[in-house]
Design a protein around this nucleic acid. Sequence first.
DNA 1: GTGGTCTAGACCACA
DNA 2: GTGGTCTAGACCACT
Lengths: 130, 130, 130, 130
Amino acid sequence: MFQIDPKQPMPLYEQIIQQVKEMYAKGLLKPNEKLPSVRELASHMVINPNTVSKAYQELERQGIIATIRGRGTFIVKQDIKPAPPTDITRLKDTLKQVVINCYYAGYFKNDLIEWLEDIYTEMEEKADED
Amino acid sequence: MFQIDPKQPMPLYEQIIQQVKEMYAKGLLKPNEKLPSVRELASHMVINPNTVSKAYQELERQGIIATIRGRGTFIVKQDIKPAPPTDITRLKDTLKQVVINCYYAGYFKNDLIEWLEDIYTEMEEKADED
Amino acid sequence: MFQIDPKQPMPLYEQIIQQVKEMYAKGLLKPNEKLPSVRELASHMVINPNTVSKAYQELERQGIIATIRGRGTFIVKQDIKPAPPTDITRLKDTLKQVVINCYYAGYFKNDLIEWLEDIYTEMEEKADED
Amino acid sequence: MFQIDPKQPMPLYEQIIQQVKEMYAKGLLKPNEKLPSVRELASHMVINPNTVSKAYQELERQGIIATIRGRGTFIVKQDIKPAPPTDITRLKDTLKQVVINCYYAGYFKNDLIEWLEDIYTEMEEKADED
DNA sequence: GTGGTCTAGACCACA
DNA sequence: GTGGTCTAGACCACT
């Protein structure tokens, strides 16, 4: 279900967060769907339960999921709210960094737009499969 | 000249690296141009010389700059070499994360393409000013 | 385990790098084996942790070891990839310098070949002990 | 005549030393032959005279050259004296490092022996040309 | 516990 | 003047 790699620079708990968000964006996780429990996921991924717990807490803080005591953790229906300008600036900055590093790798505007198309196509395909 | 912000999550030395790469990509730094000395830049930025030194060493490792002993550090002419596939995968992954986080912020394909256009326009403008 | 000598002209951190590479080449360090922690090695060698850290970071950059966050650093399985021509030229140059300095010390081709034999014999012996 | 590269890690003055020693070993410089003056060589190489001076001083210390006041600097006839054991250990260590770094570059005993043959062949050829 | 970052300040080699 | 190395000691993020 989830794929994480401890050797990657991104923290494990953040890899989990990204995966959940990605799966929701792709439609692989629907609102009200139940997520695996912390212990279940941790043992399945062979990582520390605290790490999974931290990911879930952060996801809950972001309003992506909600835990109901004694029942489990569930995906929450997202109402897209306009993000604070700080976040948008951060996103643009990250994008700019990608652009610059692509420059040094020999990839330019058209390549990046193509990559974007690919990513969105992949997301929609997954969504249609359901 | 350089602008860094200690409050940002990105390490100071990496902010410097990004700035140098950005300035070169924009044409604000030309090959063979001398960079400020480690001490100079450090005192100007009010940070520790070691931090600047670390940034310069990493830039040298990436082949962006070269140090000539006792003389200083200089921008190196870039021959754009095809990046290893690992790096390209990393770049694509970073882009995918931006896409997903944009999804939650209510920005989609067209917005991102527009942002890309803006970034490239900004880069070319700077390059033309010389 | 490791032996370093602060009196030698080679920087401490590079001595560590060489030792790790030597031990791996000799088979004394196996893939996936854990290296001592930065603090552990530093206190054992009576040097500053930063120095060990620098050595480990450079080894990671060279793909010899990998760090897993919060877990430690581990030897990585080496896939011997053809080195860039620049590196080979550097190796040949270093070898040439050895030859020249041997000339002045009164040692010539046969002596050097004998030394090479000795070095390779030593490496294989260690490898067989496992 | 001499070729030096300020971007290489070896100090300029040591590059000069190595070149002189190499040329003597190859027979391109004969005993009693006059070397260019410090200022001459410095202006020809576009480097600081102090750097050339330092190289010459070190060469003189090693007994490779001798300066006669008012006359110039001359190559000294080498009587090969047995090197102190410390130096031999250092040479062997350097050789071992080359071996280890060759290991990671995918070159092994036979390759190194071949390289050695090449270097000695090159030296003898030059010597015969005179 | 692990490694990563940063500071302050020292000393050295090189040009 | 330049950058490189090393120390001592602090703080942080991650597991």
